[in-house]
């Protein structure tokens, strides 16, 4: 069992980052993170609450091409779930890239 670092069960080390350049870099990292979050959450909202609920009835006039699924119903019971999975993996890819770009990644393999 490796030692827990920082100690578990309490907050991480509380030394403030004082270097102004690092502070500015962290602030920019956070702004980019928020921009990604907003974009992904808009998609999250549109596929579920939008297509699956608010627009479900009008979309049901069409079928998912090549299948017997009414489109609104498909979004509510299948499509939104697939979209959720894809969203999380896109987020992981974006954030891992962002971590490296701003030098805040944790190192190690994969």
């Amino acid at each position: 069992m490796a030692d827990a670092e920082p100690p578990y069960g309490s907050a991480p080390k509380r030394e403030s980052v004082t270097d102004p350049e690092t502070r500015a870099r962290h602030a920019e990292y956070w702004r980019r993170n928020i921009r990604y979050l907003v974009g992904l959450l808009v998609v999250w909202f549109v596929v579920s609450f939008g297509f699956g609920i608010i627009l479900a009835e009008p979309l049901n006039a069409f079928n998912l091409p090549g299948t017997g699924f009414p489109l609104g119903f498909w979004f509510a019971q299948q499509g939104s779930i697939y979209a959720f999975v894809i969203l999380i993996f896109v987020y992981v890819k974006l954030m891992n890239g962002l971590d490296v770009e701003f030098g805040v990644d944790e190192g190690g393999e994969s």
Partner: peptide, 16 residues
């Protein structure tokens, strides 16, 4: 300061 720290991944204890 704590909030600043949790927003940045580096330093979460990679020793495991």
């Amino acid at each position: 300061v704590l909030v600043d720290l949790i927003r940045v991944p580096r330093g979460a204890g990679e020793a495991h």
